[in-house]
Design a binder for these strands. Structure first.
Lengths: 241, 241
DNA sequence: GCTTGTGAAACGTTTCACAGCA
DNA sequence: TGCTGTGAAACGTTTCACAAGC
């Protein structure tokens, strides 16, 4: 599934040398894997910034994550010219740029459906906010859980499912996180879409379908363990060239 | 990172028509994305089995997950000939085959490091066992948490970090799941490797390095939300050709 | 009819290699 | 010298299209 994004002109003078006609914004194709790596570059850069490092080369950034220097440069070049020949990339500048590209230079409101163990863990996780995500509500259909507070003093109250739609609308929630059992995941997803959610991250161990205008991500913990099991099982039989 | 696995001969008569010389097992290359999809096929098939369905075509299996029929057939064909022309795939048979391929036709012992919210959620998750994974121990360095029981009656006791190595060895633990803060993830990974763990799944929001003999998976919740944010942000500018 | 398995073609992604710049 | 940005080549993956089988 290739991703088409509207290309932005490189820094500095826009190339209008062709003359009088305004050049239409290039339509460029960004490989989905490149966008995934952008998140990892950002994470690494934030760590470097904490360590006080001011610049980094594509070689060092790649090495830290197991990619080649060419891969790093190519990935970044899809979005513009951020580097400085002879110097590398300025850490602070690149962080700002990548946040702008990913859209996390502002705070996204998210809600969690399902206040089981995983739902509680997601609501309690302190790392989301500095990444640009704020969990503003959590829902559960168990009356014994509704009304309870999750996430300590600054936490949120568990709401009943019938509050879902109005919460999305009134609070401007854009992201829905599904931490419900597999058998209700599709139904909840439908409700979220109906309520006007803009994207869904599904932790339920089942595949769900949404209109293809709604970006959908999914994380299945068992699937990740299975992939490990496969790689361990076959590594004894493996000949990595 | 291409994956090389030792190809298995198709069902029935091994092709030894070339004559007297024993044909060496073909070394075949399986795309990593194909292996990931195998897990999804398995999940879908298990759901179909629960619904009583006996056979399924590559077309229907693909449709359920958003893939083409050719993709499904190709993926499965990397590992052998499991289908029946005119019929499709027998659900029960294919489940057995895929489990055999992934290595989850037996139970893998896993441990969790970190008994915070996420660690507790992982230990408590009831779905792992029927997928072939058993969490046999959980560790935490907080003395207030050590000794506590997690996961109810059948749960496990939280152990201190100094019990890590002997637990891996004595109980034959093969998989390590990291649910610790980023700043200790690498250190814990090193200890797990030192103790003889065979694979690691990292939930800490940082990249870690392990010897390349040790398969490593990683799940960063913020990264998944970032990818959603990007897709939402760009979808207004998107022309999915 | 409907279905699989599979070479070959099409397509997508990564790596190479080097011009250009600090 | 060291580094980026980028076309072109190499490589990997998916789709096509069809022979063969139920």
């Amino acid at each position: 599934m290739p991703l088409y994004i509207q290309g932005m002109p490189p820094d500095g003078q826009p190339d209008n040398s062709a003359g009088l006609v305004q050049r239409p914004a290039r339509l460029e194709v960004v490989p989905a894997p490149a966008v995934r790596r952008l998140s990892l570059y950002l994470r690494e850069l934030e760590s470097l910034l904490g360590g006080g490092q001011e610049t980094i080369s594509s070689k060092d950034l790649g090495n830290a994550l197991g990619y080649t220097d060419a891969q790093v440069r190519k990935d970044l070049a899809y979005f513009g010219q951020f580097g400085h020949p002879g110097i590398g990339y300025r850490v602070k500048e690149l962080i700002t740029r990548i946040r702008g590209i990913l859209g996390t230079d502002r705070v996204w409101k998210a809600l969690v459906v399902g206040a089981g163990n995983l739902g509680q863990a997601l609501v309690s996780y302190r790392g989301f906010l500095k990444k640009g995500f704020e969990i503003v509500a959590v829902f559960d259909n168990d009356p014994k859980v509704v009304g309870r507070r999750i996430g300590g003093a600054t936490g949120v109250e568990v709401l009943p499912p019938d509050r879902l739609a109005d919460t999305v609308r009134e609070r401007g929630v854009e992201l829905g996180i599904l931490a419900v059992p597999a058998d209700v995941a599709q139904r909840v997803a439908d409700q979220l879409v109906e309520a006007g959610i803009k994207g869904i991250l599904n932790f339920a161990p089942t595949s769900i379908t949404v209109p293809d205008t709604i970006p959908l991500g999914s994380v299945d913990l068992s699937v990740h363990l299975e992939q490990l099991a496969f790689r361990i099982s076959t590594s004894s039989v493996t000949t990595p060239q």
